[in-house]
Design a protein around this nucleic acid. Structure first.
Lengths: 363, 363
DNA sequence: GCCGGTCCGGAAACCGTATCCCATCGTTGT
DNA sequence: ACAACGATGGGATACGGTTTCCGGACCGGC
């Protein structure tokens, strides 16, 4: 009964349906729609009419198979819930949209296997680039793993972009968009030290996380610069979440640790720390000062408003996409940029609010 | 010089390359990879070896053109930065991943034109469903607009899912996943009223936003139930952001408005309100009580912790995806579900924390 | 009025994969 | 030992567009 293409078809309309109904050839319809070939006004009118009637849209898969198609960027993140992520994603997405590009999102949940699966999935999709977000765990395997991803994507005509983590070693085809993590931590710690604080509790994050390592290093350098001895016993490692901030301070309080300020690795950690201080009967900033890192909206919504380090997350997202777009356009004429141009670093700065005061008592 | 397929090809490897190099037919490679057809162990070994060597992955576009392909869900949102959104997205993404589906994200920025463009873009991509997130502006055009989207997607074999907004009127091919918005507001207002509050400042949100309308209605019903006269002058409309919360309370304070509690339309608005109260020299909850709505992490991170209405955002995301998957599986045997089964409502409940106390003075 | 140039429409090849159908080979039953 | 059958592999075709290559029509100029 039903041949290949009967009228009562339930699937979507094809370009052939449009051509047939408009009484023109398939090629003509394609030309009208892509607009890269001269067509008569009459033809255009007829075709557009039918396109409107049938509510036709071209099949993106077929189009991209034939060579065209809208470029797509994939964003891979550990946890979609983080505020910092959202801003990077916003930057990427916004810049992508501006160019008519599309963006995909995938979450890895800190699972390397899932990360691999996603990178491959994105490779299948033929994405223009894969953007990996957030700090990385600096284990041995990591560098090899990323290098493999980079080459794999590169061979498929795609590209790896690392955002918010240090660049890969060696000659790996990847772009890194980073921020001055250590510098921000240095400035933040200096702020605390210049206010007179000497005993500060450090909550940099997980010991293996590159982000945490950089923030700790920056703080250490500041201590050195101020000639203040650095006490490793004042460092508490842990995840970047509210609970860790709370527990770390709670424990320190119970343990009788002496401190007049808290240098948190993240605004969220700072929020937890602040709560724990209050629970312990201490006032912020009168009794204890607190600073955070990231400058997410939460920072200015806490009471008192949090002094923190501003990280240009959204701009990093935009920059990342621009890097990909540039490379894609300039790709035709050989390697224009050396491996140095593949590492972009954005600045950070301290945002002073109301969570820091000179310590009540001086040592 | 270069014929159709030379060895030094820069593009990604095709199935033909694999077949050629393994000395087998294209069909065999396809069969080994999809695994839905019996192949000898010897063949499988040979093919997999080459696949490994070439780091080959199938072209998703070609695959989906040929009928197969991984289903994809598109998530469309006004602003990717909202915490509530992130949780719905997490739910959708997680459930999608569990089934091996993919998820796309697009932001509309409250621009109807952009929304239309995105829906069409998703239609081109042949997505299994388009999930529209967040409250809607209840203007005349809206219903028609959505109905058009729904039919358009339906005709293309896709499906429209509305999350967090009321269902469409009439027989429109769309699924709605909603929460008991009004009920939550009723319970929240009742909580305040039963604590003895009579003069409460209401910040439900934008007057045209369906979410705000429902929350205001719920509150009004609670006032009626408690026999407390409802004063429209105590309502301040505005966007769901920190600034609005701050300014609304600041203005009310300056204007000499008399109130003992604030019923905010959102946790973020509540945070702004709380800050403004403090700036005005009032204590929370001793002088003024505050409640929010949404129960995002921020609610429990504020000081005092915010009493609010829990909305199961993540679950809504999961439910939305399940609805799509079910429909897709059961779609073969005609319409299994009536238009009633296309509206799912999840429950809400009050989460009592520390931001509410009986008013210091009774009227 | 004829010729040449410009412009536009139609047919066909190709993008990379899945699948249908047929050929082949080895095996088993009688 | 022969026939029938099951298990596999290969060739061809469809999926929905884009694009190139041509051929034909229309127009203007001389």
């Amino acid at each position: 009964m039903s041949q290949r293409k009967t009228s009562g078809d339930v699937g979507r309309a094809t370009i052939r349906d449009v051509a047939e109904r408009a009484g023109v050839s398939v090629a003509s319809v394609s030309r009208v729609l892509s607009g890269n070939y001269p067509v008569s006004e009459e033809l255009r009118r007829r075709v557009m009419k039918v396109v409107g009637d049938l509510d036709y849209v071209t099949n993106a898969h077929a189009r991209s198979l034939a060579g065209g198609g809208t470029p797509t960027v994939a964003i891979l993140i550990n946890n979609i819930t983080g505020a910092a992520f959202a801003h990077v994603a916003k930057g990427v997405e916004g810049a992508a949209t501006l160019r008519g590009w599309l963006s995909l999102v995938g979450t890895t949940g800190d699972d390397p296997e899932r990360e691999l699966a996603l990178v491959n999935l994105m490779r299948q999709q033929g994405v223009a680039a894969v953007v990996l977000l957030g700090g990385a765990y600096d284990v041995d395997e990591y560098q090899l793993r990323m290098a493999r991803f980079a080459r794999s994507l590169d061979a498929a005509g795609s590209h790896l972009v690392l955002v918010g983590r240090p660049p890969l070693e060696g000659d790996v085809p990847a772009t890194t968009v980073d921020y001055d993590n250590e510098g921000g931590a240095y400035a933040m710690a200096s702020h605390l030290l210049s206010a007179g604080h000497r005993r500060v509790l450090l909550l940099p994050g997980h010991a293996e996380l590159t982000t945490a390592q950089g923030r700790l290093r920056g703080a250490q350098r500041a201590f050195e610069a101020y000639g203040v001895p650095f006490d490793p016993g004042m460092v508490r490692h842990g995840p970047y979440d509210y609970e860790h901030g709370y527990e770390a301070v709670e424990d320190s309080l119970k343990g009788g640790v002496d401190f007049t300020a808290v240098l948190a690795g993240t605004d969220v950690v700072a929020a937890g720390a602040m709560q724990a201080l209050r629970a312990g009967g201490l006032r912020v900033p009168e009794d204890v000062s607190i600073v955070g890192y990231d400058d997410i909206p939460l920072a200015s919504q806490l009471t008192p408003q949090l002094t923190t380090v501003h990280v240009p997350y959204e701009e990093m997202g935009r920059v990342a996409l621009r890097a990909v777009a540039d490379r894609r356009e300039g790709g035709g004429t050989g390697r224009r940029r050396g491996s140095d141009g593949d590492h972009l670093v954005l600045g950070t700065h301290v945002v002073v609010r109301n969570s820091v005061r000179p310590p009540a008592r001086r040592d």
